[in-house]
Amino acid sequence: MKLRRITTHGNWIPEIDGLRFVAITATLLVHILGETYFRGGYTFRDQNRENVLTFVDHGDRGVLLFFAISGFILAQPFLRQRLLHGQPVSIKAYLRRRLTRLEPPYILSLLLYSSAIAISQHRFWSLIPPLLAHIVYMRNFLPVEFLNFVTWSLEVEVQFYILAPLLGLLYAIRPTTVRRGVMIVMIFASILIRTNLQGKITWNLPGQLQFFLVGFLLADLRATRTESTTSRRWDLVSVIAWVAIFAMPATYLAYSLPILILLAYLAAFNGPVSRQIFRVPWIALTGGMCYSFYLMHMLVISIAFKFTRHFLILSSLPLSFLIQAILLGSCIYLFSTAYFVLIERPCMDPKWPHQLAAKLSGISRPRHRNKRRKPSDLI
């Protein structure tokens, strides 16, 4: 199937892609709403402003859902090695996989954003410093403009990729209760760092580590999952947890959000109905393309909104948002799916650098055609 992601070991987990669907949908909706309200000229009634800002704030939690998923995915090779007695992890291969899998779609997206800005704003040289800062994942630390503001979270992801092999040593702790207890202590320590520190540190890994650690803990809990763990009670937990994740005021969220995410994700594996929902093919397949959606959606929104803004209904923000969600959402889906098929998915194949090198080698090597010799040539 052309839309299914390619995994290193061929172990596709549809529930995880279903969870990615929730995370990317929340992210897209909040950015579409922001575009509708702020670039719509602030022409909607002022009484909607607080509701819009609240929705935007809550919708940004989709990024934190991604962090927990990344923690779960990156935990797998280290968990297999140390907890399930699998093959040793080659750090070189681990880093090369991250590089070949994520960098080409990312860098190409930056070039597309830079080109769009250069054309629309008639400038070029001033874009080079931010472009270089983005490429080396240092924009969060440097005073340069964002080419694509959502990439702040990708820089946090890269910081965690580097730290993950060290955190993988947690799975070498044999007593299960001790290992999980250490993870829980680290989660709450990270929360304390986030709540007591300000500035750039909260927008980098030290302020977001608790969500990645939730993914590590989830991987540990799932590794010991049995069929007896499945229960309809988990479906009730799922409903409560998801409502709380997106509805709970930010005041009460610092300590509760990591717990809620863990419960929601456990329910996705252990609730019969929840598991069935997250395994629905179109949900899982769309979630599997989330990286392309995440990279490209703001470019699509900024361009397409120039046309879709004519469908704004100034007397109703909810109706305008619904219309924009349908129109812009359709544009995002079509463009990002094409980007996934043409750019991202080929990079998921671990062998693509070798295949490309072989093709280039074949092109550069001179071809010697064997001419048929005439009988007279043999005399």
Rank of each mutant, 00 (worst) to 15 (best):
L127P: 11
A325N: 09
F21G: 06
F278S: 04
L221G: 02
Q47F: 00
G288T: 02
H368P: 00
H297Y: 10
T54M: 13
P258D: 00
Q121M: 06
V239H: 07
R4E: 15
P346Q: 00
W352H: 08
E344W: 07
F305H: 03
F141E: 12
S376P: 07
E103W: 13
Q159M: 13
F78Q: 03
M1L: 00
V341P: 00
S190I: 14
A338G: 06
D17I: 10
C347F: 01
V239K: 13
I6F: 08
L166G: 10
L236G: 10
L312W: 07
F21I: 08
R225Q: 13
S316R: 01
L378V: 14
F305C: 11
A268W: 04
Q324Y: 11
A118L: 08
F78P: 04
S315P: 05
R61S: 12
L334C: 15
G168P: 12
V136F: 15
L166Y: 03
V144I: 02
R279Q: 11
P318V: 02
F44L: 13
A304T: 11
L110H: 10
A247M: 08
I91K: 06
W12N: 00
L169W: 06
S376V: 13
Q81F: 09
V89K: 15
Q81Y: 08
D377F: 09
T202L: 09
S126Y: 07
R345C: 02
Y37V: 06
H58N: 15
N196T: 15
V237D: 05
S90Q: 12
G10D: 13
S115L: 14
L342S: 09
G329P: 03
H134R: 11
E145R: 10
V52F: 04
Y265L: 06
N11D: 14
R39L: 12
G288H: 03
G86Y: 07
N270S: 11
I117T: 11
R279F: 04
R39N: 14
P129M: 02
T224H: 11
E155T: 15
L295N: 07
Y161Q: 10
A133T: 09
G207K: 12
A75P: 02
T43P: 07
G18W: 06
T176Y: 03
L142A: 11
F269N: 07
Y171S: 04
A219Y: 01
V56I: 07
F38W: 12
L205M: 15
V52I: 14
R123L: 06
K371G: 00
L197E: 10
Y339D: 03
P14I: 08
L360F: 05
I173M: 10
H9E: 15
A133Y: 05
V280A: 00
V52N: 09
G41Y: 08
A75H: 02
W242K: 10
L108R: 12
I193E: 00
L334S: 01
H297L: 01
K2P: 11
F340Q: 07
R232F: 05
V52P: 03
I73S: 09
A325R: 14
S228T: 15
F78W: 02
P258G: 04
F78T: 05
V150C: 05
